[in-house]
């Protein structure tokens, strides 16, 4: 397989309002996503984006370019927190023999997540 033919895509800058909307939408009450004081107790400098929200950013880039029906599986590893103000860019990468990789980096170049995509028609579908 060749590398994913994905044009790098940058999501809108993360806002506290967007973070709140997302956790309300999936009914996740974990205060680490909304309460800076709680985040500090957890050793974090600020609230962090919910896991599915980060997955959704990766999925959004894939759906925008390939369509929802083309994406069968997505396996995301969260490598670092996403904070308010962060701008996350989704790019294609290769992982050894697993070519269908994506990488999510913030505006500082830090990798915040990596993922493996299975698309319709892939040999391992």
């Amino acid at each position: 397989m060749s590398e994913l033919d994905l044009t790098p895509a940058t999501a809108p800058a993360m806002t506290r309002e967007a973070m709140r909307s997302f956790v309300d939408g999936v009914s996740d009450p974990n205060p680490v996503h909304t309460d800076p004081e709680f985040a500090a107790k957890a050793g974090l400098p600020d609230v962090v984006v919910q896991a599915s929200h980060t997955t959704a950013i990766a999925l959004n880039a894939l759906i925008a370019q390939f369509g929802a029906d083309a994406i069968l599986n997505l396996d995301i590893r969260l490598r670092g927190p996403v904070f308010p103000g962060d701008e996350v860019t989704v790019s294609p990468v290769s992982y050894g023999e697993l070519d269908r990789g994506v990488e999510l980096r913030n505006q500082r170049g830090d990798v915040v997540a990596t993922g493996i995509v299975v698309m319709r028609g892939d040999p391992d579908e």
Partner: peptide, 11 residues
Amino acid sequence: LERGLAGGQSF
């Protein structure tokens, strides 16, 4: 919730 976090997700 203070010592835990989500490390990954697969769909």
